[in-house]
Amino acid sequence: MEQQVVLSYDGSLEGFLSCVFATYEEKLKVADIFPPEKDLQELFSESREIITDPEKAKRVWSSLRKKTSSAGLRDIKYAFLSETNGIERQLLAMIRYIIAEDAAVDRDFSHPAVLKVAQVAKKVGREKHRMEAFIRFRLTRDAVYFAAIEPDFNVLPLIKTHFKSRYADQKWIIYDLRRNYGLAYDLKEVTFITLDLDPAIGISGAPEAFFHTSEISFQKLWNQYFTSTNIKSRANEKLHVQHLPKRYWKYLTEKNLPEK
């Protein structure tokens, strides 16, 4: 029987696409592809580390682009950012299917990998949208609007444009605590940054060591608005939590004010 290999790569999209390239170049039978943190403990298969090669990645992407709709390309990118276990295997199967067929098949939802990638991409899209909705900026003492988040998926690259075009006249930082990097806007450009944050800055609240004196007042005003706009006789806890899952409450000013 032909030997199966397990590939490992650096975790970047380019790295993953380099793996895809290798499967063609060396006619590999791939059992799985893993990002760096994973222990490679596949029995009975050989493991290989693939070095990221931007040139090869570009070649895979451009041949994909010829046969894939923009929605299909978006699904591939989004699903990749999910960092879900085993998503590389599904992406590889989808990409190989697209490249093997003459017709455009990236919307063939009866193919298991295409459907899986679309479903994961949908989850990532939802998380992106939730971050655009639930991020709460707090005004710091040095006049930067600051937000800390812990998203399920790596969505910072996806929300960059939205925040840039919306908050063009204020300095802001959105920081992913889980992945320890952030976006910073300086009134001109958005850059990726790494900070050494004091944990006391937190995700909500307005400790005076960090935040502007007016910050707590606006949080209280918002909280008042949130309370007053509710219609008690229509109470619907189930719907409330369905739209606003509890794991997002930590971001929300209206759910985290110590005293009313």
Partner: peptide
């Protein structure tokens, strides 16, 4: 974008 939801489940 719905930035929040009231306790009656309506979008804010």
């Amino acid at each position: 974008i719905c930035h929040s939801y009231t306790e009656d489940g309506r979008c804010v």
